[in-house]
Design a protein around this nucleic acid. Structure first.
Lengths: 265, 265
DNA sequence: ACAAGAGAAATGTGATCACACTATGAACCG
DNA sequence: CGGTTCATAGTGTGATCACATTTCTCTTGT
C-alpha cells in the first residue's frame, strides 16, 4: 500500500481506545480528509505496519469500513479506496440530498443557545479560512458546522448513515486537491441555515441545505473530470473493440458476494 | 445466546461462499425474518457453535452487522439484537420514507417488461398469502416486490443502505408476531405503485410508496407497545427516584466508542 | 522490442491460543 | 433468612501461524 498516504496521523485523544477503534478512526480520518487517493490499495498487513498494530485490528477496521461501503473490495478481498464515477457521485449526492435535510429538520427543535453561538463561530472560521485560502480549514469548518447540527438531531441511526456517506465522499476531495481553484466557486448557505434554525424553522433550513447540496453537486459535476470520463477502456469501446467495460463497472450491491476459492473439500 | 433462534437455516446456494459470508448471511436472514428477538445476545463463540464454524468467521460477521448498525454493541463489546424504542422506530421510518421513494424514482426508467410481470406476480402472491393468513409469506412477497424495484435502481450504495434499514427493522416484526391480528390492518399500495411504474411515472410511484410507509408507521405506532413504554425505569422516574434513564438511552452514534479496559500499557 | 511464462513475494482466510475483564453462581458470614 | 464475597465459567481483544491464492517481477523466447 501507499505508505506515505498514512503520514497524516492527527493523534488526539486516542488513548484508552481499543486497537480496533484506533485503527478504524485513523483510517476513517484519512478517508474523510481526502488523504487517501481513489484506487489506493489497503492491505491488511500494510495498514497494520503503517499504524503500528498487528494484523488483527487492521483487519477488523478494514472489514468495518467495507461494511459501511467506505471502501470497495476487490474480488481477492483486498480493500481499495473507491474511485467515484460520475454515476456514483450522482447517486451519493442524491442520497445526501435526502438524508442531511432530514437531519436538519429533526435537529431544529433541539438546538440550544450554546449551539447557535458555536455554529456562528464555525461560519466565521469558514470565512477567515477562505480569506487565507486554506482549503483544508474551509472543509473542516463546514464539516463541523453540519455535523454539530446532525448530532443535535439525536438520531443515532441517521447520524451513522450520514457519516458513512461522508466517508465515501472523502476520497473525491483528495482527487480534487490541486485542482485548487475549483473550490473557489463553491458557496455555502450556512448563514441562512443558521438564521432559519434560530427561529426553529426546521423545514426552511432543510430546504436550504438541500439546495446547497444540489448546487455543489452540479458545480462539481460540471467542473471535475471523473474516473470514468474518457478512460482508455471507453475510448476503445467507442472504436468498437469492446462493448463491456469491466473496469468501470460498479460492484453490485455491497460487492460482498465473493466466491470462495477451492480449499479443503 | 438463544440457541433455538438459530434453527431457521434456509440453506440455499451457500456453497462456495467464504465462511465469513456464510455466517453473515445466516445471521442477516435471521434478523430480517424476525427470527431473532430484541434483546437476544449474540456472543462470538455462541454463534460460532450455532453455525458450526470457528470463532473467526462468527466474529467477522458480527462486526460487520455492528458496522451496519444491524445489531447494537454492549459496553462489553457483546452484540445484542436491538430493542426498538418508540423514538428509534420513528427515526427508522423517517429514513425509510426518504430513501426508499428515492430508489423507486431512480428505478422507474430502468424497469423492463419482464420486471413488470414479475412484480404483478408478487402482488398476486401477496394476495393469496393474505387469504391464507400466512404472515410470513405476506412479508416475503412484499419484501421481494420492493427489493426487485430497489435493485433495478442500479444504485449500489443506496441499495446497501436500504438493506441496512431492513436489517434493523427485522427484529421488530419478530416481536410483533403473535400479536397476529395486528398485521391485518395494514394495506399496501403496491398495485397503484406498479401501475405508475408501468407508465414510467417515477415521481408518483415514489409518492405512493412514501405514503405507504408513513401509513404503516402510524399504524404500528398506534398499535404496538414498545420496549420503552412504561418500563420499570420510567415508572421510577415518574416517582422522582431517577431523572436520567440510563437503560433507555440510545447508544451514541454507532456506539463504537467503547473505552478500553486497562491492560498492558 | 515485446509478449508470455516461471518464480517469488505478498495477500486474505481461517484456526487457535493467551489474556484480562465480566457476570453468574454458590458458599459464607452476619 | 438476607447480604456480601469469592471462585468459576464465559466474554471480547489481540497475537500468531499455516495455507491457498493472487499479484508482481524478472526472465526467457520469438
Amino acid at each position: 500500500m501507499n505508505r506515505s498516504a498514512m503520514a497524516f496521523l492527527p493523534v488526539s485523544e486516542e488513548e484508552g481506545l481499543t486497537l480496533d477503534e484506533l485503527a478504524y478512526r485513523r483510517l476513517s480520518r484519512a478517508l474523510v480528509t481526502g488523504a487517501m487517493l481513489p484506487g489506493d490499495r489497503l492491505s491488511i498487513r500494510g495498514v497494520a505496519a503503517a499504524l503500528g498494530v498487528s494484523s488483527m485490528p487492521a483487519r477488523t477496521a478494514l472489514q468495518r469500513l467495507a461494511a459501511e461501503q467506505a471502501v470497495d473490495l476487490l474480488p481477492s478481498g483486498t480493500a481499495v479506496v473507491p474511485r467515484l464515477t460520475r454515476a456514483g457521485f450522482a447517486e451519493l449526492s442524491a442520497i445526501r440530498a435526502e438524508l442531511e435535510p432530514l437531519a436538519v429538520r429533526l435537529a431544529a427543535p433541539h438546538l440550544t443557545e450554546a449551539d447557535w453561538t458555536r455554529l456562528a463561530a464555525l461560519i466565521s472560521a469558514h470565512d477567515t479560512a477562505r480569506g487565507a485560502g486554506e482549503a483544508e480549514a474551509i472543509q473542516a469548518a463546514d464539516r463541523d458546522f453540519l455535523f454539530l447540527i446532525y448530532r443535535a438531531a439525536q438520531a443515532p441511526l441517521l447520524l451513522g448513515l450520514i457519516e458513512t456517506l461522508w466517508l465515501r465522499r472523502g476520497p473525491l476531495f483528495g482527487a480534487i486537491r490541486g485542482l485548487s481553484g475549483a473550490l473557489g466557486g463553491m458557496r455555502h448557505r450556512h448563514g441562512e441555515i443558521l438564521a432559519s434554525l434560530r427561529e426553529r424553522a426546521g423545514e426552511p433550513a432543510a430546504a436550504l441545505l438541500r439546495s446547497e447540496i444540489e448546487e455543489a453537486t452540479r458545480f462539481i459535476q460540471s467542473t471535475l473530470r471523473f474516473e470514468d470520463d474518457d478512460t482508455a477502456a471507453e475510448r476503445l469501446a467507442a472504436i468498437g473493440q469492446l462493448n463491456a467495460h469491466p473496469l468501470d463497472r460498479e460492484p453490485t450491491s455491497l460487492s460482498h458476494h465473493r466466491r470462495r476459492r477451492s480449499r479443503g473439500t
